[in-house]
Design a protein around this nucleic acid. Sequence first.
DNA 1: GCCGTTTTCGGCCCGACTGTTTTCAGTCG
Length: 469
Amino acid sequence: MDKKNVIQSLETIATYMEIAGENPFKISAYRKAAAALEREERTLLEIEKPESLTGIGKGTASVIEQLRDTGKSDVLDELKESIPAGLPPLLQLQSLGGKKVGKLYKELGITDADSLKEACEKQQIRELQGFGVKTEEKILQALNEVGKRPERLPVSDMLSVAEEIEEQLRTFTHILRFERAGSLRRIKETVKDVDYVISTSDAQSVREQLKTLTDIEEIVADGDTKVSFVLLKKHRIGVDFRLVEDEAFATALHHFTGSKDHHLLMRKLAKDQGKKINEYGVEQDAAGSLVQFKDERQFFEHFGLTYIPPEAREGSGEIERSRHGHSYIQLEDIQSDLHMHTVWSDGANSVKEMAEDAKKRGYNYICITDHSKFLQVANGLNEERLARQAEDIKDANEHVSGIRVLKGTEMDIRPDGTLDFHNDVLQTLDFVIASIHSSFSQSKEQIHERLEAAFRNPFVHMIAHQREE
DNA sequence: GCCGTTTTCGGCCCGACTGTTTTCAGTCG
């Protein structure tokens, strides 16, 4: 059983335990174990003793070992026996957590979505301690919406919604700063809802203005510092706004950018340093005074960390790297592009134009790597045209100053495993990329042999875009 | 279940909001 399946199983165990009403901290240990494995770079077989990982103790380690060695888990089997399979999916419903789902099962014998719906319609839910009319209505509404929209939407869809919202925010008064937060700011591939942090000197006024946003279908929450809507766009889209004073903007932005795992580790680090992080600032234990920050960079510096960009805040080792002074590549750090097509094959610009644009971007050198002759559909170059292109590149080097243009190719690895150019041609080039563009339906072994041929060629520097299985 | 300058017990990240209560539990992010 590979690591991914073990992680999945640990999370399933946690979910079942939640419904069974186990100690929340016991449950979180299994979740922490899944997160620890996720962070771990080694494969499961290379981890001889899972117990040695932080956050994993004896109990969870034995579950992991059993999963690894036999692909089964006694714990999971037992839980599955005691809890109907229809219950865990109910956790996805709005306002239904493990404790409530467990209670519905124990008190009313609810086993799946259908029986839950029936109980709602018979108005039985409202009779339970801790439940009421409103909860019953919410559950019914959530049940009716299942499958109508995907749980998460592609980030590209959300970006256009965000732009519409921001256009309106810019016209509002009393907003000092606003910024996207949540998974949208972390540029996750899929995003559940859109989050904003707004700093203001007049929260009441901003709160009222927010209610004038277009396409509001429902006001989900309307508190002093938090306003949530459902907007009716192509789908129903949740939008959260958090209102803070400007002094708290940086910490609030960090807080609402997440992710959850990143926060758990940040707060642990803070605690180790005798501090406490909340969305308004950092509390120093001794005096209880609140430290606030100009921006997130300063916030990270406060903990002895280098800046961690939103995209890296996943609790997957970034804090540890940052403690050791790791800094992230910025756009201006990029020196070169070694994979470029021009009008010689299927590109849109000439060699000279590519050089000029790269120079504008601050690159020091580039490499022209047009397709080779096998790829007819892309107007691939044969030996004769490759030689003529070399003249073109020489010309670009003479006429565009301050940047060096290298000669390269993106050469096909042909279906029979031979390469599209002979070595005597390849050795005249500065950089050789080898790619498979054809016969993807071959067996794994055949594809492997083709790749190996390229790997073994002393003139090949890089393999490009192999198709993923 | 995990962990330890709080070390074999007692705490575990933190706060807002809602809906249920009548001071708080559950959910959410």
